[in-house]
Simulated assay, not measured.
Amino acid sequence: MIAMVPAIDIGNFLGDDPENMSTALQLLLLLTVLSLAPAILILMTCFTRIVVVLSFVRQGIATQQMPPNQVLIALALFLTFFIMAPVFAEINEEALTPFLDGDINQDEAFEEASIPLKEFMAEHTREKDLALFIDYAGMEQPETIEDIPLTAMVPAFAISELKTAFQIGFLIFIPFLVIDMIVASVLMSMGMMMLPPVMISLPFKILLFVLVDGWYLIVESLLLSY
């Protein structure tokens, strides 16, 4: 039995009518933006720092897949929305609402929406990282934040966030590393060479993390870092 595939008429999109062609291009642009939305969320917001730090916490405790990836990603996502709320509100007020009301066109809406994001990213981007991409592209030194193109700002912001996240992750690892070293030394002095130190140190690391209210401290540090 041969399945019949319904035909799709794309003649209206490929015709000579400029209006239909414009509609097709707008639809294609919309689908492209939606496909790039995850990358935009990850690289232009605080999501990168948050999810990397939470991953370091899980690896430092050595609890394998606890908490699960879905929980860490969801927590990082909601923390991102919480931190970025003022920026999103400004974008909605200055760009989205006027565009939907017909007061500005698409180009003006894009420019207005990029300004709050650029200000947020510039505040947390190292000058060294930003200068790397500006110098490599041979651009003139921008006079204001608005003059910095997103093609240079976004990767500079991303590597700055990664550096900060790894610095926080290093500080998170230190107390857990101390516990591992103490447990390993105790087991070696008792002659228990075949017993994995991780099995013994895991309960102590979980206990330490719970006693100091670790999740509260981690989230508080992330919020204060912005």
Rank of each mutant, 00 (worst) to 15 (best):
G15K: 11
L171H: 03
L72S: 02
T144G: 09
L223P: 04
F204Q: 09
L31I: 07
L150N: 08
L28A: 10
A137C: 12
E123R: 11
I200H: 08
I83E: 06
A156P: 01
P38N: 04
L77C: 15
D101M: 15
L132F: 15
P68E: 03
L207M: 11
S185G: 08
G191Y: 05
W215N: 05
L41T: 08
G11L: 13
I104W: 07
V154L: 08
L72D: 01
F176A: 06
W215Q: 07
P116Q: 10
N20Y: 14
G138A: 11
D180W: 06
V71M: 09
R126F: 14
A7T: 11
M192S: 08
I115C: 00
E220A: 12
K118Y: 02
F88L: 13
M121Y: 00
Y136R: 12
A152G: 03
F47R: 13
R49Q: 13
P18G: 04
G214E: 07
Q141R: 14
L27Q: 15
G102I: 04
M192Y: 10
V198Q: 12
D101H: 06
V178Y: 05
L195K: 01
D213Q: 10
F82H: 12
M1T: 07
P86Y: 09
L27A: 14
V51Q: 02
V33L: 14
S35R: 13
M44Y: 00
I172M: 09
I218K: 07
V154Q: 07
M153I: 04
I148A: 03
S201A: 02
D16P: 10
A76K: 01
L130W: 05
S114W: 05
G102Q: 03
G214I: 10
M190T: 07
A95F: 11
P203T: 07
D16R: 15
M199H: 06
G102L: 03
Q70Y: 02
N105L: 07
D16C: 09
V212W: 00
N92W: 02
S185L: 05
V154D: 08
E143A: 11
T164D: 08
V212P: 02
Q26F: 10
D16L: 15
L117E: 01
I218L: 14
M188H: 06
Q59T: 14
F170R: 09
D17E: 12
A39Y: 00
A85W: 11
L130T: 11
L187D: 00
M199W: 05
P68G: 00
D17F: 09
N69P: 01
F173M: 09
L34C: 08
S189I: 09
L79K: 02
L96G: 00
E127I: 01
V154G: 11
D9G: 08
Q26K: 15
K163E: 14
A156C: 08
A122F: 08
T45D: 02
I174R: 01
M181D: 06
D180Q: 11
P68A: 00
L187F: 00
F88I: 13
L207Q: 05
A109W: 12
F176N: 06
I182E: 05
L34T: 06
L77K: 15
F99Q: 13
P98A: 09
T97M: 09
Q141A: 09
L171R: 06
G191W: 03
P18E: 03
A24Y: 00
I148F: 01
V5H: 04
E19N: 06
P197R: 12
